[in-house]
């Protein structure tokens, strides 16, 4: 698209955004800035029906809240691991699917299918695998030490179960985007590179990855935000257990708001989460955008 053409029609393009933007304001920006943010300055328990303005007290309390810090650390850990694994696995799958593999369409949809299953169902499937299927397979294979692993009995094992489910369901979507990105790379460039001796692993690192940067930007953005909001899989797999060590921030906020009814405090946590995610994504966008190559 030439930039002159783009400039001429800028207004039209912006006008196209208006309906979506209005809906977005109504459903998201409104509640966020007129509900969540103001409420975070109140000591507000929904069943006590009292709302006392306490200024930044909720935020001050957060710093000393062990559960919140545990869940923040857990979410960061989960984020780093799932974002990395999701993207590496998704790229690897899409790389091989981009080559001429057998039954390409079928294989592609098989890898994408987990993404169409709801988080709660995914959690049930993996719970079943970890508690019923894996121990039986291991003991049939004579690996008693593996069969007796308690997958939900310790924080580190429970973490692995959540990561497995999250990666299984999350990588399919990223794979589709990577695949689209790979197919968009002009065959001429790759051919020219190959003639110059850039083949195999070198081709991936020096040609395909740099040209994929726009896709990587989007994929990292989607997966980072997703990881920070992760709720359904940990909720249904471990319920935050054992002893609350697998609580994500979202789960922690939910419990505060609807189990102990501490709505004001929960809103303060949401606001903090909002700023954390914003900071991380802004840094990530700046970083990856810089690496994008203009052809």
């Amino acid at each position: 698209m030439s930039s002159a053409f783009y400039k001429k029609n800028t207004r039209f393009y912006l006008a196209l955004l208006i309906p979506a933007f209005c809906l977005y304001c109504l459903a998201l920006i409104g509640p966020l800035f007129f509900g969540t943010v103001p409420s975070s300055f109140y000591d507000w328990n929904i069943i006590k029906a009292k709302r006392n303005f306490t200024g930044f007290e909720n935020f001050a309390e957060l710093i000393h809240d062990k559960q919140f810090l545990t869940s923040l650390f857990f979410t960061l850990k989960l984020g780093v691991v799932t974002v990395t694994l999701n993207n590496i696995i998704a790229f690897a799958i899409s790389y091989f699917l981009n080559e001429n593999v057998f039954a390409k369409g079928f294989t592609r949809s098989m890898f994408f299918m987990p993404n169409t299953i709801g988080g709660i169902m995914v959690a049930f499937i993996w719970c079943f695998l970890f508690t019923n299927v894996l121990p039986k397979i291991f003991s049939a294979a004579g690996l008693e030490s593996m069969a007796s692993i308690s997958w939900f009995g310790s924080g580190s094992m429970a973490f692995i179960t959540i990561v497995a489910a999250a990666v299984w369901t999350g990588s399919g979507f990223l794979m589709v985007l990577y695949l689209a990105g790979l197919q968009n790379i002009s065959a001429d460039i790759l051919e020219a590179g190959e003639i110059d001796g850039c083949t195999g692993f070198k081709k991936v690192i020096l040609l395909q990855l740099p040209l994929l940067m726009p896709t990587i930007t989007i994929n990292l953005f989607v997966s980072i935000a997703g990881a920070f909001k992760s709720f359904d899989i940990p909720y249904a797999m471990t319920g935050g257990g054992p002893a609350g060590v697998t609580n994500t921030i979202a789960l922690n906020i939910y419990k505060d708001a609807f189990s102990t009814y501490n709505m004001g405090y929960a809103c303060a946590k949401s606001v903090v989460l909002f700023f954390i995610v914003m900071a991380i994504t802004c840094i990530q966008l700046r970083f990856t955008r810089k690496k994008e190559v203009q052809l």
Binding site: P31, G35, T36, F228, I253, V277, T281
Partner: peptide
């Protein structure tokens, strides 16, 4: 975009 990502959560307290 970040707001969109996190507001799903914030929406819980709508």
């Amino acid at each position: 975009l970040t707001a969109a990502m996190t507001a799903g959560l914030a929406g819980c307290s709508s």
